[in-house]
Amino acid sequence: MNHDLSKLPGIFDRYPKHQQSLIAVLQDIQKEYQFLPCEALEETARVLDVPLSKVFSVSTFYNAFSLHPRGEKVLRVCVGTTCHIRGAAQIQEQLESQLNIKAGETTPDLKFTIETVGCVGACAKAPVVIVNERYYGPVKVSDYKKLLRGK
C-alpha cells in the first residue's frame, strides 16, 4: 500500500531529530493519517536515527497507535466495570451486528471502526460510547443510529 507521505517532513520539522521525539512524532502521524503506515515508520526510524525495531516496538506497545487503517468514525465502546454493569456488552453487540464487524475491526469502506476501551472515567454517564472525540452517554441499545450518524 502506498500512502501520501508528503506530510511527514512537516511533522518531523516540529521536533528535534532525536530518539526522545519518537512518541511525539508517532502521535502526530497517527493524528494525520488515522494510523501509522509502514512507510511512515521506516521514514521515522531513518529521520530520528532510531532502529526500526525500536520504532515498531513502541508503535505496537501503545493502544493509541494503530498499524492498520482506521475508519473515519472510531466508535469506542467503554467496557469498564460500570459500563459493563449497565449493559456495554449489549451496546457493543448491537454496533457489531449493525456494521457487521467485530471490535478492533474496520468496515471495508473505511467508514467505521469499533474498539473497546477499559474505563474512560465517565462512569456517571455509563454506558458510554465515544465517537471520535465526542462522548455519548448514557447510551441505549436503540441509540445506535444516532451513534453511527453522530459527528
Binding site: 526500526l52 525495531s53 515498531f56 516496538s57 505496537t60 506497545f61
Partner: peptide
C-alpha cells in the same frame, strides 16, 4: 529484533 505488542500478545519479532 525487538519485543512487539504487550500483555498477552507480546512476542519477539523483527520489525513489521
Amino acid at each position: 529484533i525487538s519485543t512487539v505488542g504487550r500483555g498477552h500478545g507480546k512476542e519477539v519479532s523483527p520489525p513489521l
